[in-house]
Nucleic acid binder design. Structure first.
Length: 419
DNA sequence: TCTGGGGTCCTAGGACCC
DNA sequence: TCTGGGGTCCTAGGACCC
């Protein structure tokens, strides 16, 4: 059996865990730069604040409805996420961290008459008690079905108390007939549209389609999904997750038309990618740099480019990645464009301690100990204490974060005091 | 003024090999 | 009329997820 444990309204719930004033009240969390709404409490949803709403258009609405609007506080959410995940691993060793707020867990070799419903409640109760985060738990014989079960648990809190188990053929059929095709995990807008034209309205209709037809008209992904929904375990638990690609991309607070500011941003994004690489003990063979004008600015000349650099040896050195990224961005930069967004992506990742050596090229051996020193200094004294010369040393670039909550769990000065 | 950021997987088609 | 058969690798683009 598999379970999907999903944190309800995760970012909003994290804020509530440390600020009880927000309990029972409508709460909304904004994206980077205080751009648009990316998480809402149930109350905010009920009032009608939509997902993705640009806040500058909804400011008045939030004010009239007393919605508490907060900037996103990723250090807090990341930390809370790992707390939740470590609790889950107490229930079974087989945990797949699926996203910041969701995990699949597998119950291998559990007795056939095991009481999963009861176990689900234990999970839910412990997570809530130890972190303050409410969760929904869906349990079923396959991953795709556990997703469906999870939706049921979430949708009917009074009946399910947050836990739903699909453990019989009757329940499976009933669940599949209940869930709309567009709400099925793996069926997005495009596929839902095509399926509806075929008269497919629910997951049950989807499973009734012939295998061959599905494979031919869609792809193996949908064919696998279909089997999983039929109750035949096809999608496997994926516990080990080294990233295959790492990205740092940001919108700027203003637009920039000069290469100097953009070079600085690229250098910083490149260093951030390099840091993330070192954290997962990977090195990259490919660096991609992207640049983009403000897509919302009608009338302004638009420019959207990217270019990639292939390296002859893999690296995770900030110096090397930054240098290549800077010359790459200089080659695509166009004079006269107002740029609003840039990014660095590293891919072609290999384990740092195990890759094909090259007879003619290798990284300067001094970089490895240098990076290790930089990382340990930044860990000890706060990130960004040590930067590259090509980064901005005076002014620290800031996102707009006007409604940021304290770093309750990751900054010693922000720990709450109980009086 | 103001509209996020980070991922995965698959397919088709081109270019190449013998 | 009629022109083999079997591969690999790479890239761009599309679809999906949170």
């Amino acid at each position: 059996m598999f379970a999907l444990v999903d944190c309800n309204n995760f970012y909003a719930s994290c804020e509530r865990a440390f600020n009880p004033n927000l309990q029972g009240k409508p709460v909304a969390i904004l994206s980077n730069n205080d751009g648009c709404v990316i998480s809402r409490s149930d109350e905010a949803k009920a009032i009608g604040l939509p997902m993705g709403a640009p806040i500058f258009k909804w400011e008045a609405f939030c004010k009239t409805n007393n919605i508490h609007v907060l900037s996103s506080n990723y250090p807090l959410y990341g930390d809370m996420s790992s707390r939740v995940m470590s609790i889950l691993s107490q229930f079974t060793p087989d945990v797949e961290l699926y996203s910041i707020d969701e995990s699949f867990i597998e119950f291998k070799n559990f007795k056939t008459d095991f009481n999963y419903n009861d176990y689900g409640f234990q999970i839910r109760t412990r997570v809530l008690k130890w972190t303050g985060i409410p969760t929904s738990v869906g349990i079923a014989p396959t991953k795709a079905l556990s997703k469906v079960a999870n939706k049921i648990a979430r949708k009917f809190p009074n009946e399910t108390k947050g836990v739903y188990v699909i453990d019989s053929e009757e329940k499976r059929i009933k669940a599949l007939k209940w869930i709309k095709i567009e709400d099925v995990w793996g069926i997005g807008r495009r596929l839902a549209e095509r399926l509806k034209m075929k008269g497919c309205k629910t997951a049950f209709d989807f499973t009734a389609l012939p295998d061959a037809w599905v494979k031919q008209n869609f792809s193996v992904i949908e064919a696998r999904l279909k089997r999983d929904l039929e109750g035949i375990p096809t999608l496997q638990l994926d516990e080990h997750k080294d990233r295959k690609m790492i990205a740092t991309t940001r919108s700027f607070e203003y637009t920039y038309s000069d290469i100097d500011n953009i070079k600085e941003r690229i250098s910083t994004f490149a260093s951030s990618c390099a840091e993330k690489l070192r954290k997962q003990n990977s090195s990259c063979y490919v660096i991609i740099v992207t640049l983009r004008s403000d897509r919302h600015k009608k009338g302004a000349e638009q420019h959207r480019v990217s270019t990639s650099v292939n390296l002859t040896y893999p690296t995770n050195s900030s110096l090397i990645i930054s240098n290549y990224a800077i010359s790459a961005v200089m080659s695509i930069f166009k004079e006269g464009i107002k740029y609003k967004r840039a990014g660095v992506i590293v891919t072609g990742l290999v384990p740092t301690d195990n890759y094909q050596l090259n007879m003619f090229h290798e990284e300067n051996p001094k970089h490895k100990p240098l990076m290790a020193s930089i990382d340990s200094l930044n860990t000890k004294y706060g990130s960004n204490k040590i930067k590259l010369g090509s980064q901005d040393l005076q002014r620290t670039w800031k996102m707009r974060q006007e409604r940021l909550s304290p770093r309750y769990t990751t900054n010693i000065n922000d720990i709450i005091v109980v009086k």
